[in-house]
Nucleic acid binder design. Sequence first.
DNA 1: TATTGTTATACTCTATAACTATA
DNA 2: TATAGTTATAGAGTATAACAATA
Lengths: 158, 158
Amino acid sequence: MVNETRVEGDLGWMLGASFRAYAKAAGHLLSDVPGGPRGYQILTAATSDTPANQGTLAQQLGIDRTVLTYLIDDLEAAGLVERRPDPADRRQRRIVATDKGRTLWEERQTALRTLESRLLSVLGDDAGTFQSLLCTLARHLNSTDHTIDLCQVAEDLM
Amino acid sequence: MVNETRVEGDLGWMLGASFRAYAKAAGHLLSDVPGGPRGYQILTAATSDTPANQGTLAQQLGIDRTVLTYLIDDLEAAGLVERRPDPADRRQRRIVATDKGRTLWEERQTALRTLESRLLSVLGDDAGTFQSLLCTLARHLNSTDHTIDLCQVAEDLM
DNA sequence: TATTGTTATACTCTATAACTATA
DNA sequence: TATAGTTATAGAGTATAACAATA
């Protein structure tokens, strides 16, 4: 190995470098979607059969609730999603994709899948394995309980 | 699966969610290192036998060169690294860890390894496989050539 | 003239706090 | 009183451009 460097063994570096490369490429592909990749993720959630309210969405996407307001404002202004007051609790707004939003989402989803397989192509036959493991990890880490746990572990290690 | 949602199948979401969780936990562990996890990564590179110059470092860590200047300023002020002019080209500065920096790095490196294995523990026996695949992916994506390639792919897909 | 790194400045992004409305 | 969402504002983080030193 020629350009071996120590940082490349760091999990944080691996995750960061992969995420940056993905975000850059996806940013190009989604440049005309308000909010870019993040706007697309909101759109993805909004096409779900069980649309989330903003608080849930913010937690899931790792976005501050105040920032999410602006992102949804832009998506709504572009006619891609709409805020629907929850009949059961009128404080909450369910974020639902419009027909225009669904159409755009489906189109970009296909392109993104192609981009993803290109990104992972270096892994060859193991790409599926990787994606499966990463999904397990991400879902696990994203649950609120584990986030707190991990910070506690970090504190204890100091 | 109860809380199944569509975003969780998105590679960008998986990478982002994992990275955020890592950064949050590592941020606690490295809160007293100037620059946090990023400062630690610089320190890691600075403990290498072949210390990098700032331009190389910026590219490798995905940091703007002007931002890197401030980060190194803080690490240098804390006595953890020093800037050594490259004898062969006096424009370049090699970033080298001091003894104090090496000691701190070794201490935190041990703690971080523990944190990492806790983070990956949900993957069980596949944790090693995952780490190996992620390393391959990150190294591949971080090479400048492939970054350009991927953006080209993204453009073509639009 | 081109490149490495620095500095000053402006910009973007994010988070804090205060507010409205519902519960 | 507590919670969901919004808004205004301040703060952190980042990038652009001009600069000095070296090649």
